[in-house]
C-alpha cells in the first residue's frame, strides 16, 4: 500500500490494481451511460427500428409550451425553496453554533438531524395525513372556527414548498453550522465595540465569513430540490407539474426514450449551470464545496 516503498514495477502494479475498480465504476456507470444518453437524445425515429440524427427532441421541448413551462416552473420553485430553506435554517444554525453552549448545542444539533434519518417517504406520509382535507390541520382549523368546513391543504404550490423546504433543511443546517462555528466571537465583539449594530455586523462580518457554507448549502439544496420526485408528486398531486415527472412519463409510461433523454439532459444542464454560477459567485472550488457538505 505504500507508494514510496518497493521497486518501481511493484508500485505501478499497485496503482494499476487500485485504478481498475475506480475507472470501471466511473466509466461503466457514469461516463458511458451519459454519453449514451446524449446520443439517444440526438436521434429521431423515422420508422420502426430506423433512426436519424437530429435535434427533433430539443425542438419539441422548445416548441411545446407545456414542456418548457414546467421546466421554468420547476427551476423557479426550486430557487424559491432554496432561499426559504436558507432563511429558515440560518437562525437555527446560528443558535446551534453560537448561542447554545457545550452539550446543549450538540444535543440541539442531533435533534435537528434525527428527522433526516427517516425516509423521505415517511416524512411525506406525515405531511399528507396532516394536510389532506380529512386530515389533522383542516380539522383543527374547523375546530378553532377559522374555517367553516375542512379545506384541502394538499395540492397547492405552497404545500409543495413546505414539503421541499422540510426535506432540504438538513443539507442547509450542516454546512451553515460548520462555517459559523469557525467564526471567531471576538470579531463580532470588536465590531460591536466599534459601533456596529446587529444588521451591519450580519452584513459585514457574519455573512462574508459564512459565505462558503451558504454557497455549499444552497448548491446542494437547489440540486436536490430540482431532482426531487417524491415530494412534488405526492404533495402536489396532478397539479405538481414537476420536470422529473415529465422525464418519468416519457421514459417509463410512454416509452419515448429519445424525448426522455433530451429532457434529462436539459435538467442536467440546468442543475450543472446553477452549481457553476454558485461557485463563480462565491469564488470557490468545486472540490472544496463538496467536501464541506
Amino acid at each position: 500500500m505504500d507508494d514510496t516503498a518497493g521497486p518501481a514495477w511493484q508500485r505501478r502494479l499497485m496503482v494499476g490494481l487500485l485504478l481498475a475498480p475506480a475507472l470501471l465504476w466511473l466509466f461503466a456507470l457514469i461516463v458511458l451511460p451519459h454519453v449514451d444518453l446524449a446520443l439517444l437524445s440526438l436521434r429521431e425515429r423515422t420508422a420502426p427500428r430506423e433512426y436519424v440524427t437530429s435535434l427533433a427532441q430539443y425542438r419539441t421541448f422548445f416548441g411545446e409550451p407545456l414542456y418548457w413551462h414546467i421546466f421554468v416552473r420547476t427551476a423557479v420553485m426550486s430557487l424559491i425553496s432554496t432561499l426559504l430553506t436558507l432563511l429558515i435554517a440560518f437562525p437555527i444554525a446560528w443558535t446551534i453554533a453560537k448561542l447554545a453552549r457545550g452539550r446543549l448545542g450538540t444535543l440541539l444539533f442531533i435533534v435537528c438531524l434525527i428527522p433526516f434519518w427517516v425516509s423521505e417517504t415517511v416524512r411525506t406520509l406525515g405531511w399528507m395525513i396532516l394536510l389532506r382535507e380529512s386530515g389533522v390541520l383542516p380539522g383543527i382549523l374547523v375546530h378553532l372556527g377559522i374555517t367553516a368546513v375542512p379545506v384541502e391543504l394538499l395540492y397547492h404550490d405552497a404545500t409543495i414548498l413546505v414539503g421541499l423546504v422540510y426535506t432540504s433543511l438538513l443539507f442547509m443546517v450542516v454546512p451553515l453550522v460548520s462555517s459559523l462555528e469557525s467564526l471567531d466571537n471576538s470579531l463580532i465583539e470588536a465590531a460591536y465595540d466599534l459601533g456596529g449594530n446587529g444588521l451591519s455586523i450580519l452584513r459585514q462580518i457574519v455573512i462574508p465569513h459564512a459565505l462558503p457554507g451558504i454557497t455549499a448549502g444552497c448548491i446542494v439544496v437547489f440540486m436536490l430540490t430540482l431532482g426531487n420526485y417524491l415530494t412534488p408528486t405526492l404533495l402536489g398531486g396532478t397539479s405538481s407539474q414537476w420536470f422529473t415527472e415529465q422525464i418519468y412519463t416519457q421514459f417509463i409510461t410512454r416509452f419515448n426514450w429519445e424525448q426522455g433523454a433530451a429532457f434529462g439532459f436539459l435538467l442536467l444542464a440546468l442543475s450543472t449551470s446553477m452549481v457553476w454560477v454558485g461557485l463563480k459567485l462565491s469564488g470557490q472550488r468545486f472540490s472544496d464545496v463538496m467536501r464541506r457538505t
Binding site: 475506480a22 466511473l26 457514469i30 449514451d36 440540486m223 426514450w257 426522455g260 442543475s271 452549481v275
Partner: peptide, 20 residues
Amino acid sequence: MMLAPLVIPGVILGISILAF
C-alpha cells in the same frame, strides 16, 4: 470526476444507466 455523481440528479443517473 469522483465527485461528479454527487451533482447529477438521481433521476438522471437512473435513466442513463437504464438506457446504457
